[in-house]
Nucleic acid binder design. Sequence first.
DNA 1: TGCCATTGCAACAGGATCTGTTACAGCCAT
DNA 2: ATGGCTGTAACAGATCCTGTTGCAATGGCA
Lengths: 145, 145
Amino acid sequence: MAANSRLTIAVHALAWLELARRRGRGVLTSDEVAASVNTNPVVIRRSLGRLADAGLLTVRRGTGAGWSLARGAEEITLLEVYDAVDPEPVFALHATEPNLECPVGFGIRPALGHVYGAVELGLRRELARTTVADVLAETLRVKQQ
Amino acid sequence: MAANSRLTIAVHALAWLELARRRGRGVLTSDEVAASVNTNPVVIRRSLGRLADAGLLTVRRGTGAGWSLARGAEEITLLEVYDAVDPEPVFALHATEPNLECPVGFGIRPALGHVYGAVELGLRRELARTTVADVLAETLRVKQQ
DNA sequence: TGCCATTGCAACAGGATCTGTTACAGCCAT
DNA sequence: ATGGCTGTAACAGATCCTGTTGCAATGGCA
């Protein structure tokens, strides 16, 4: 399966919001974020809406509205972003229930669930080690090269 | 996106082949494997064909043909199975190229690629720690409860 | 040599998901 | 009240996953 790009879009938007904040613009509209990500504003609203639900962003409606970071970028880990936008498991179990008459069919799902749980835990631990500020720093470092 | 179940199908088939081998049947047909996984034999051939390409299985054609393990189950890690059947990245970058005029749009892809690479590395390390024999042992342990 | 069980593979269908888009309702600073 | 903006439903095109059918190719065996 081709993976989705939701985490990428969300982190991109957060990094852009942080850079704009440092430049004195604490609030950006969906159109402004979409211009950097190069996609439709509705895609941005879909993504940032989940981040706002999770408390990572605050959103203001009406004239002069837009999105702003609810916390410092160095306090937002990619794990929080992941949980906010992409609560899908990495590996799926069987599409249809296996044959429970077979000892393997009977016991394999909890056994694999165990392994997949450990994998997912490692993935979460890795995502928790990086913040939006880290990503922005690395992003700007690339720019200078 | 919903993840695919290719790794699950492949590990299930390998565990079943190992159990059959211990019971004195070193070769199973696609139909026999499909009966345990509860799917179509063609799905099994698609999956096991990749495992044979990777050298994990040997396949015999013609009358009395079928699949057999090319190595002991304790020598086959889930990482090898993963590499054989599911060479997809976990996270995708942008579907369309971001705006390169924006400093974030310009530098974010290598920055995120860095993070995603580390995540993928952790995932591989975790998968390498478990063998098909481990999964079978856990599977049979569940059976006894 | 001919038969037959079995794999290899192409092709297709149904369902799901992802991304992008349009349209419109709801909100709110001025 | 107006205008600018978000929230969200609905839809389309593309892609992928799973399951299925059909048929060619292989090779053991009589």
